[in-house]
Design a protein around this nucleic acid. Structure first.
Lengths: 185, 185
DNA sequence: TATACAATGTAGCGGTCGCTACAGATTCGG
DNA sequence: CCGAATCTGTAGCGACCGCTACATTGTATA
């Protein structure tokens, strides 16, 4: 019960890749084990139970996404809201980023019913999102900046939820409309 | 295989109430049957299979929500975007309406992975939302009205996703910020 | 009253689920 | 080289899953 942290790390990376690619619906221990090239028996050797495993994997994926965001748009320079929204919208629509948004929607939906470990992780991730935007918004008034950050996150999340439906036009139009509003204000 | 439509109707109402209250995670045939006061055997007497049952129940709940929306805000009069957003935000936050928003988030998240019957139903519901807003927006330019409607729906959906997390402040702030922007434009 | 059909109970099939017991293998410090 | 600790395979438990076979009851009509 004191497994090698390096092997655990390598295993976790493979588990994270599978969850990212296939979503929360394909996370039985046997499915995860097959994807990671091991057995369900081993998963429960490295993690106390399934909830602990999912918690670790989702926390890791949240950190991955945060790193991706930070790398794509360094924290130093602040942008006007319209520009920042355009940048983030382009980022969220990138093929490499879409799976994170889909997974985020799944986690948030689960959290909406209060299910653990999703509720706790979702709250952390959402807070991280708002902080990330807040840090990059060129708006002197901190209260207004905080509210603007919340607005950007809400519309991005809404767009992420709506993008896979139909032809995705609703999401595109919503992003465009808010950019127009922000640019004109 | 030609069951009484009245009994089927009464059964469906009970099934819908259970799905609305407990979400997509509690929809095994045995759970549904227990909630409806019958047996899994009977559910498959009234519906071809589980997908057909869920499709019927979710379609019914979507219609219920649409009726609730239409009743709360008659189609006749059109409002400025800021006012309409305030009204819809208050509506979506009502205790009687929150379960619909949670369920909608679950359906949309499932649809994001392409799972049927969710993908089809989610597209229909989202289209209905946009149409409902579009019909009530006081904006003469139809293109701009369509884009504004998409924006309102995206931010409402985003707020619905974020409201159950933490203290719900992100959702509240996002709604307030957009109302401010719309009022000032 | 006989018959046709809707409605329902009982029982179980084959499958997946999370999880565990137990034993064997591997590795590495003394 | 031995013993302890880490690692892994095999096998299965009890629960739940969607779904089905089969028999039986209720009911309405001819």
């Amino acid at each position: 019960m004191a497994p090698n942290p390096e092997k655990r790390e390598a295993l976790e990376a493979r588990l994270a890749a599978h969850v990212l690619a296939h979503g929360l619906g394909q996370t039985s221990l046997r499915q995860l084990a097959a994807a990671a090239g091991t057995s369900d028996r081993m998963l429960l050797y490295y993690y106390a139970d399934k909830a602990a495993l999912l918690g670790a994997v989702l926390t890791r994926l949240a950190a991955d996404m945060a790193n991706g965001l930070a790398a794509a748009l360094p924290a130093g320079d602040r942008l006007p809201a319209a520009d920042l929204l355009a940048r983030v919208g382009a980022l969220a629509a990138q093929p490499g980023f879409r799976p994170y948004m889909s997974l985020w929607a799944e986690i948030a939906a689960e959290a909406g019913r209060g299910a653990q470990p999703f509720a706790m992780i979702a709250t952390t991730i959402a807070g991280g999102f708002v902080y990330w935007v807040d840090e990059r918004l060129a708006e002197p008034d901190p209260v207004r900046r905080r509210d603007l950050a919340a607005l950007l996150i809400a519309v991005i999340d809404g767009a992420a939820l709506l993008a896979p439906l139909g032809d995705g036009a609703i999401a595109t139009r919503a992003m465009g409309a808010l950019q127009g509003l922000l640019a004109a204000s």
